[in-house]
């Protein structure tokens, strides 16, 4: 499957940025070729997963307000089937890290992530979650949540507009759509551990 085939309704592939990155990602995933049956099953599973991503209600600061706006009437993320916000991490699929993560909050965020069931995704929303943002000089701010948990999509902005968050969500959908279910999970943190193993088991 090429990136061109990853369809998002009403959005052309050219409209997305970072296609090169996704292409590389797909190439890595498809190194051993794809079994036809498995490929079709993968497609069905990924269709389900990518269209039903339930976010955890998690917000620490300013970006949380914009996250509320995404859920509100103007930019309604229910259109993508994302509006089932779960309050229990056990039932959520994606965590929007909306806002600054400070030292005291870091273990809490990590625990939340650990409590989520696979497959789980992380979207880092806003400058603070990406790198510490305007608070990078602070003694108490974690400089990017990717120090604590693996991040799938970064949405820059301070705070990002709701449209930007929608775009980030669609990028995550595209990323989910190329996943291989019948292989070890493709999470960045697991990749390191399983890189040797996966090269041998990939071609099943």
């Amino acid at each position: 499957m090429e990136v061109k085939d990853i369809s998002i309704k009403n959005m052309k592939t050219e409209d997305f940025k970072d296609n090169a990155y996704l292409e590389k990602y797909v190439e890595e995933l498809r190194q051993g070729g794809v079994n036809v049956v498995v490929g079709v099953l993968d497609d069905i599973i990924n269709w389900g997963r990518s269209n039903s991503v339930w976010p955890l209600t998690f917000a620490t600061s300013c970006c949380g307000i914009e996250f509320m706006c995404v859920g509100a009437a103007r930019t309604d993320f229910a259109r993508f089937g994302w509006e089932v916000t779960r309050n229990s991490p056990r039932q959520a699929d994606v965590i929007f890290v909306a806002g600054t993560i400070v030292h005291k909050m870091a273990p809490v965020l990590k625990r939340l992530y650990d409590q989520m069931a696979e497959p789980k995704y992380v979207i880092a929303v806003g400058g603070c979650a990406i790198s510490g943002g305007p608070f990078i000089d602070s003694y108490h701010v974690v400089k990017g949540v990717d120090q604590i948990i693996p991040v799938d999509v970064y949405v820059p902005g301070c705070p990002p507009r709701p449209d930007a968050m929608l775009y980030g969500m669609m990028q995550l959908q595209r990323k989910i759509k190329v996943e291989n279910f019948f292989k070890l999970p493709n999470k960045p943190n697991r990749e390191k551990e399983t890189s040797d193993e996966s090269s041998t088991t990939q071609s099943k």
């Binding site: 599973i45 269709w47 389900g48 997963r49 269209n51 039903s52 991503v53 069931a117 696979e118 497959p119």
Partner: peptide, 17 residues
């Protein structure tokens, strides 16, 4: 209209902790 079917596919394959 297939929204809840997608949800079903997802939830069936979700990890049980």
């Amino acid at each position: 209209i297939f929204q809840s079917i997608a949800d079903m596919v997802k939830i069936l394959l979700k990890e049980i902790i």
